[in-house]
Design a protein around this nucleic acid. Structure first.
Lengths: 327, 327
DNA sequence: CTGAAAGCGCTTACAG
DNA sequence: CTGAAAGCGCTTACAG
């Protein structure tokens, strides 16, 4: 049988009100009474039912998180940062994906309407940005983990894409490279434009191949550039998957990395240290983005004001063998 | 203002009881009445509060999942399988980790006592197996995703470790290899003993290096074996991280893969297709293990009997260049 | 087929 | 400092 607040009250010879006060405010209760109540709570091993507390208080001490897919290479880091922060605050984390398409979205929307959580963290909302924006307008606290430069109409955490692109260019330039091929993700992402602009400001180039954020894109872009006889001594790939494809194509073509062509990626996913050669890349602080977003949301739930401009976290150059410091 | 069941009842000119019946059983209600109620529900956009339903019914339609860390290479696949299955059943997924140590465990235990979820999925319980077992005995439905051969006292989903080891040996043997080095994880894991036994049954060897499931272990084991002048023409690494370390050590020593030494890993994590050369490995069906575990748990919650023996899913040989079919 | 009432386990004015 | 009572939004015997 479940132990309830009524059991505690009876055992301690007080009212449920008093037990509740000991549990929550702590104040306004005689210290002797409080001690006795705490003792009984301990002995019975009483823990308030989260459902009942939620119903009475109108909040669930739970936050929701919506992601398109959990298997994207850097998603685990984001999620770990979120979970750590949310747990440390005593909140629960309810996880949702858009992975099964419309059905997923319906399930998610239902949980929102059912008030299953107090606030929402979102990653890459793709086709749901409008829905999310509407939910936010209707009062749901929302924070976006914005690795793609969506710049939504609600609080978000982003990263220094422009500075990251510039850092890649600066590194290549400093190591003596001058003729760059850039392989990007889809141009309609803000992050792609920013990374490209930042790069070209330091190391101008017209050799730009647009594609998806995939290994195939990188492979194809390099094959094509080589077939067309393009002249380049370095590649800036807009993420590490693209970079992996670039490395493969260069290897197949007999170009040595980094001797003939230096390669820089973006993200620093776990794979980056295991490619051959290991990948120099611009690290996105995914775990810290998750932590920061969670902290913002929790602050908002606690009634603190949260910034409406994006909170921007710095990227960081990670040097490995695909583009060493000298040479 | 939140729309409640009372609002619907008033608008439809019926009692809350009737609305509830339309919502849940569907039966025992006059079809005209039911239609009217549904209409009102639609118009008002009414969705029952999950908290209130949970309290009244004594269950939350939510399942919990506890993992040590979310950043392990194959964890995303497990999680995706779980989320898909749980969502499709209309349940929510509450995620917990042991990532922050004792504090995490306390938070988790609190949520269990608070009846925040109806059933629990666990991955690799390390130091919490006793706690979990106790919770299961007290009535919490639990299913373990058992990739390590823990064989707990409650339902679990495992994989064919022994057959996987045998498949690795068979593949190497068939491609003409005969002198094997095996690099394992910790011997106290059931999966390690099984993989080793399965392998040696087909391809006997005394060259076995025990370590952790890490890149360093693989690197060190090969360096040591080479330094000691051991003679081997193939390596069976007990997971893909170890295999990555093996590849690196072989490359550093100037041994060609697969010409001089063929390498087979275990798991098929995303990285496996990006090593140089890409890794032949024994694939563990992590996503299906997640799906299966979730399905078992949901079946249990629905009152269906669930098997007490482990449900065992087959591994699968994935051939890539580090150990091709011929040669 | 339908509804009034009790109950799920808490919190929170309100009164003392 | 403490408690009786109402209320959070549902479900579910029970009675008709």
């Amino acid at each position: 049988m479940r132990v309830t607040i009524a059991d505690v009250a009876r055992q301690a010879g007080v009212s449920k009100t008093t037990v509740s006060r000991v549990l929550n405010t702590g104040a306004e209760v005689d210290s002797t009474t409080a001690a006795r109540v705490r003792e009984v709570i301990d002995v019975l091993g009483y823990v308030p039912s989260s459902g009942a507390v939620g119903l009475a208080r109108g909040s669930s001490r739970t936050i929701g998180m919506l992601t398109p897919s959990l298997t994207w290479p850097w998603m685990s880091e984001v999620l770990q940062g979120v979970v750590d922060t949310v747990e440390a605050a005593g909140y629960g984390l309810l996880l949702f994906t858009c992975h099964r398409g419309a059905d997923s979205v319906r399930h998610f929307a239902g949980q929102v309407s059912a008030r299953a959580f107090d606030g929402l963290l979102v990653v890459e909302p793709e086709n749901t940005l409008d829905t999310i924006t509407a939910m936010h307008r209707r009062g749901l606290p929302v924070v976006l983990i914005d690795d793609r430069g969506h710049q939504p109409a609600f609080p978000s955490v982003a990263t220094t894409n422009r500075a990251g692109g510039a850092a890649a260019a600066g590194h290549l330039l400093a190591s003596g490279r001058g003729r760059a091929l850039v392989v990007t993700g889809r141009r309609d992402f803000g992050c792609v434009r920013e990374r490209l602009d930042g790069f070209r400001e330091i190391l101008p180039t017209d050799l730009v191949a647009e594609g998806e954020f995939t290994e195939q894109t990188g492979h194809l872009a390099v094959r094509r550039a080589l077939a067309e006889g393009r002249d380049f001594d370095c590649v800036f790939a807009h993420n590490d998957l693209i970079a992996a494809g670039v490395l493969r194509a260069l290897r197949e073509a007999g170009r040595r990395v980094p001797e003939d062509v230096a390669v820089v990626g973006f993200d620093d996913i776990p794979m980056a240290r295991h490619t051959e050669p290991p990948l120099t890349t611009i690290r996105q602080p995914m775990r810290r983005m998750g932590e920061t977003a969670a902290r913002l949301l929790l602050a908002g739930l606690a009634g603190e004001p949260i910034p409406h401009e994006p909170v921007v976290l710095p990227t960081e150059l990670v040097v490995r063998r695909s583009a060493p410091a000298h040479g």
